[in-house]
Design a protein around this nucleic acid. Sequence first.
DNA 1: TAGATTGTTAATCGATTAACAATC
DNA 2: TAGATTGTTAATCGATTAACAATC
Lengths: 229, 229
Amino acid sequence: MKNAPAREVPQPTIRRLPTYLHYLRDRAASGQAVVSTSAIAQHLGLEATQVRKDLGYTGVAGKPRVGYPLPLLIDAIEALLGWQRLSRACLVGVGHLGTSLLGYERFSHYGLHIVAAFDRDPRQHGRPCSGRTVWPMDRFAQIVRRDDIHIGIVTVPADAAQAVADLMVAAGIAAIWNFAPVTLRLPPGIIVQNEDLYASLALLSQRLVAHVTLQAQDDPHAPHPERGR
Amino acid sequence: MKNAPAREVPQPTIRRLPTYLHYLRDRAASGQAVVSTSAIAQHLGLEATQVRKDLGYTGVAGKPRVGYPLPLLIDAIEALLGWQRLSRACLVGVGHLGTSLLGYERFSHYGLHIVAAFDRDPRQHGRPCSGRTVWPMDRFAQIVRRDDIHIGIVTVPADAAQAVADLMVAAGIAAIWNFAPVTLRLPPGIIVQNEDLYASLALLSQRLVAHVTLQAQDDPHAPHPERGR
DNA sequence: TAGATTGTTAATCGATTAACAATC
DNA sequence: TAGATTGTTAATCGATTAACAATC
C-alpha cells in the first residue's frame, strides 16, 4: 500500500480555509446542497480560480455546471485542519485577554476546546471563568497530563511568557498559541503560532501613512490631514 | 522638484518592521550605537540578506565592517510606519477583549493612542477603563470629530460589528482595526485591517495534524496520539 | 593590507492569475 | 446540443535566497 503523496497545502490556503468553512456552513444551514466557486469567490472577495485551486487540496470533486457538494466539502476541510475532533487546550493567564478567549464559544466550531485555565494570582483560583475553574500554576503538569491536553494558550504578560512556555514544554504540550509579544525560545518539534498584534498594527499604520501622503499630493494646500478635519 | 519615487514596501517587510524596531530599541537602550544585519538576523531567526533588503527600504546607509547607525535606523522605521506621531484611535466594545486592548500601554511605542472608548451597555458609561471614560454610542460622531480620531478599533461581538463599522465610516474614520470575526462591507478608500484569529488557529491546527500524522507513520503501533499518554 | 560587512543584481522559489480543455 | 463550470497546465507576479562586487 503506497503512502498518500501527502500533498503539501500552502500556508495562504490554510489561512483561507476557515473563511470558506464559515461560508459553506452558512450555506448548508440554509438548505443548500451544492456551491460553485464563483459564488464563494464573489461573497469573500476572492478570485474564482484561487478558490478552485484551494478547494482542490480537499480532494473533493465538483461537477461541472453544478458545483461542489456542500457536506463533503465541509467534512474535507475539517479533516484537513484536524477539526473533526476538538483538540484539548489549556490557557495560562486569566487577565482580560485570557478571559475574553475563554468566552469564545465559537472555538468549538473551529477545532478547539479549552478545558482548563491557570493563573499565578491566588485571587483567581477556584473561581470559575466561563464555566472553567482557574487552577494555580503548580497543578499545571498534573492537569495537562490528566486531561490529555495538547495545546497551550499563552495570555500572560510579555515578561512571564517564556517561563510559561517552558512549563508547557516540560508538561508535554505539543503546540503553543502565543499571544504575548515575545519570541519564545522552544526546543525543535514544538509547534508555535504567534499572534503578532504589532505586525498587524504596522500594516494598518503604513497604509494610513500612504493614504495621507497621497491625499497631500493631490491637494498640497489642504489642511494637514493629521490635524483638522 | 521631482516626486520621490514612493518605493513600494512589500507587505511581509512591513510586518517584520515592528520586530526590528523592538530589537533596535533594546540595543539602543543598552548603549549600543550601531548594529549589523547578521546580529539582527541571528537574534530574530531570519536570513541576514533578508534583513539587509528590509532595512534597505528605510534608505539608511550602513557602513561596511561597522553596521547601521541605531538612532537613524529607528527613526527611519518609525517614519516608514507613521509612528513618529501617535495616531489617535477610538475603541468600540468594552468587553474583555476591548478592556485588554485599552490596557496595552505598549501601543504608545507602536504609533497608537487610544483616546476614547464606547459601549452600548449603559452600565459601562462614565466608568473609567484604563484611564479612559467609556461613552455611550450616541456621542460617537461628536467625540470622533472633536478629538480628531482617525482609527476605529472594533471589539464588539460579530453581529454588532457591521453596524459599528458603518457608524465609524459615517463619522469620518479613515482606518478600521477589526477584531470581530466578520468580513466588513466598507466603501472604497476606507482602510481595514482584520485580526483573523481563526486563520491563525487553522495554521496551528494544521501543523498539529501533520505532526501527529507523521508520528503515526513513524510508529504505527504507538497508541493513538489523540488519546493516551 | 586583509577581511568583514554592506548593498545590489541574479537565481530560485512559491503563490496567484490566466488560459483553456474536459465534462456534465 | 449548448453552455456553464470544473480542473489542470502555463504564465505571471512577487518575495526570498544566493552570489558577489563595492567599501570601509
